[in-house]
């Protein structure tokens, strides 16, 4: 690092977390810029975590007007019409987030993310999108990948009592502590499009059923021209039919995706706040790891389901790119 020191104020405020990740990581955090799109519950949780952690800036994009549905799992929107009337969700959330940490700049950007060009994305180190169609995820992911600088890309979705995080860190170098040593590591990530194109039949037998179920719902919404989450119980037969087709095409036993799970994902339009807290917490932790270059990051999907209580990491990539230890010998502090 360039040796710039944290101010007295920063050291006092961030005391407890500097003890976790060190002053160096704190400096990197304070210079990083985050973009989020789609202010749903899990994203609101993520924003809170990252603002408290002390990033340089956070830019919010969500032009929707505040509705009752919006504040069901989002504590950043006070249910007071005088406060939110006439404002977009991003604007209301921005005002709440600013109060959490005066040292972080919180901004609002208006417009459609998919129409923004490279020079827009170039301002950021991390891009997090939520409630996006497959096509939009792919598009934004590709825009990030085309830049000369490395931008970390995440998608996050909570449906009913389930949550999913996708991570693309491209070519990520980091250090981690192994016994007394600090080990340098490297990971190669596929894009979202590459990851979901991996044929299902080559995936390990134990791959989480949520991974498959989420892809089925995603494809259904895409095929029917629905927005994300614009799906309900009457759609169940259609979804089950699509599941059958996809499973046949992929030579996957259809029982690997339980109908009850799909039913749950369809019915739960509203987010479940504890799941948002968990998903937003894991995502916050991952972004801090990616920015600081410290610790094993997630590769490349994370799933949580209240029903079994498991928080599972799945590596869905085509190439067998494991962790590569580049060099050893840097002793820690």
């Amino acid at each position: 690092m360039d040796g710039e020191e944290l101010t007295e104020q920063e050291t006092a405020l961030y005391d407890r977390q500097i003890r976790v990740w060190g002053a160096d990581a704190q400096r990197r955090l304070s210079k990083s810029h985050i973009l989020v799109y789609g202010m749903k519950g899990a994203v609101a949780e993520f924003c809170k975590n990252i603002v408290l952690a002390g990033v340089g800036s956070l830019t919010l994009v969500d032009d929707r007007l505040v509705t009752e549905e919006a504040f069901s799992a989002n504590f950043l929107i006070p249910p007071n019409e005088n406060v939110y009337s006439g404002k977009t969700i991003a604007e209301v959330c921005c005002n709440s987030l600013k109060e959490f940490n005066p040292m972080v700049r919180v901004l609002v950007e208006k417009g459609d993310l998919s129409s923004f060009g490279g020079e827009f994305y170039d301002k950021f180190d991390v891009v997090v999108v939520s409630c996006c169609s497959v096509a939009k995820k792919n598009l934004i992911n590709e825009k990030c990948r085309k830049l000369s600088k490395r931008v970390a890309f995440y998608t996050v979705d909570c449906r009913d009592s389930c949550g999913e995080i996708f991570v693309d860190l491209q070519n990520h170098k980091y250090s981690k502590q192994k016994l007394e040593e600090t080990v340098e590591c490297q990971l190669q990530y596929p894009s979202f499009e590459e990851a979901i194109s991996v044929p299902w039949k080559v995936l390990p037998r134990k791959t989480s059923k949520l991974y498959f179920a989420m892809r089925v719902i995603e494809q259904f919404e895409e095929a029917e021209g629905r927005g994300v989450g614009e799906i309900s119980v009457p759609d169940l037969p259609g979804v089950l039919k699509l599941k059958k087709e996809i499973c046949e095409a992929n030579s996957l036993n259809a029982s690997r995706i339980p109908d009850t799970l799909l039913e749950r994902l369809i019915m739960g339009a509203r987010e479940f706040p504890p799941v948002c807290a968990i998903i937003g917490g894991i995502l916050g932790q991952e972004v801090i790891k990616a920015l600081s270059g410290k610790g094993d990051p997630l590769k490349n999907f994370f799933f949580f389901d209240v029903m079994d209580g498991k928080g599972i990491v799945e590596d869905i990539s085509n190439t067998e790119t494991g962790r590569v230890a580049v060099s050893r010998g840097l002793t820690l502090e």
Binding site: R16, Q17, V20, A53, C276, A277, G280, I282, V306
Partner: peptide
């Protein structure tokens, strides 16, 4: 002093409520 960050607390709180 115990190390403490928001993310872990948020996750734990979510699990407690469940």
């Amino acid at each position: 002093i115990v190390h403490a960050v928001a993310t872990t607390n948020a996750i734990i709180a979510g699990l407690i409520v469940i």
